[in-house]
């Protein structure tokens, strides 16, 4: 008591100004859980951490071997494998897009009742939850081990993500056009065609392209179980120490993926934002000139 009173007024003021930090239970729980996970995993995992120190030296040596063995000779095979990966990814995206499209409108809350929406959502979640590799292995007995197996497996898994994300887009559309079509007597399909699609389609198509980018990576991953493509090409080269194939394969996969990403992201921007202002202006000028021309005879 006496101690508190003897403190200078200034520090008491400071104490008052800065309130005590509230006890953040959420933050502490998260920190504790994460630390426990980290300790448990790193202590019990069967990893030879000692090898980590040798890794940089080995990496340099490996890089030198790659450079020393650099050759353009396997370029044809590497490009063929890369193209196969892209083809698999494209077919997979198409399967996902075509199969998910009708489900989207059943899974959107603003178009259907909960009675319809919930089961469709659950179905989409099931597609989404199963990892591609599991689907691929489950399909091998039916389709054998080949690119089509990979494409179908990735396609099924794409249905889930595409369906869910597209349904969210449809749910976020402006209600106005929907009501307008209803007010002028439009039925279910008319509403879809004239009120929903014009609003949602660009973004849905952009999502398809985005999924294509992801699928290229997934198809490379599935390559190691033998569906073909660049993933299997590089993994086999690593296994058999064919250094010229490893190096070239890496270069091809990096460049091709970045190229597809760049093209796809430009297309996506064009889809969502519409034509660039300059192109828009040019078109408008052209159409105005055309219209004036038409009016001339009058």
């Amino acid at each position: 008591m006496t101690e508190t009173r003897s403190r200078p007024a200034r520090s008491r003021l400071a104490e008052q100004v800065r309130p005590e930090r509230p006890f953040a239970r959420f933050r502490w729980t998260v920190t504790l859980v994460l630390t426990a996970l980290l300790v448990w995993s790193s202590a019990t995992v069967d990893a030879s951490w000692g090898r980590l120190t040798e890794a940089p030296g080995r990496a340099v040596g490996f890089a030198q071997t790659l450079v020393a063995n650099a050759s353009l000779e396997p370029l044809g095979v590497a490009l063929e494998a890369m193209w196969e990966s892209i083809a698999i990814a494209w077919i997979a995206t198409l399967i996902g897009a075509v199969c998910s499209f009708p489900l989207v409108f059943l899974a959107a809350g603003n178009l259907t009742r909960g009675r319809v929406k919930q089961p469709v959502r659950q179905l989409l979640n099931v597609f989404r939850a199963v990892p591609e590799i599991v689907l691929a292995i489950a399909l091998i007995p039916f389709l054998g081990l080949g690119p089509v197996t990979g494409a179908v497996a990735m396609g099924i898994s794409s249905i889930g993500t595409l369906g869910k994300l597209s349904a969210e887009i449809v749910e976020s559309i402006d209600r106005g056009p929907l009501e307008a079509v209803e007010a002028s007597g439009g039925g279910r399909l008319t509403r879809l065609r004239w009120a929903v699609l014009p609003q949602a389609m660009p973004e849905i198509a952009a999502f398809w392209l985005y999924r294509f980018e992801i699928n290229i990576r997934v198809s490379a991953v599935l390559g190691v179980i033998g569906i073909g493509g660049i993933g299997g090409f590089i993994a086999q080269a690593v296994e058999r120490n064919v250094f010229e194939r490893i190096g070239l394969g890496l270069v091809v996969v990096i460049l091709a993926t970045m190229l597809v990403d760049a093209i796809s992201s430009r297309l996506r921007r064009r889809l969502i934002e519409g034509p660039s202002p300059a192109a828009q202006a040019r078109r408008e000028r052209a159409s105005v000139a055309g219209a004036e021309h038409e009016e001339d005879p009058e």
């Binding site: 090898r51 490996f62 991953v221 190691v224 690593v238 996969v253 460049l255």
Partner: peptide, 16 residues
């Protein structure tokens, strides 16, 4: 741009 399995294959070379 490098798929995770390719990273894994490369790291198998580096750290066994």
């Amino acid at each position: 741009a490098i798929p995770d399995v390719i990273w894994a294959a490369l790291f198998v070379v580096l750290v066994s």
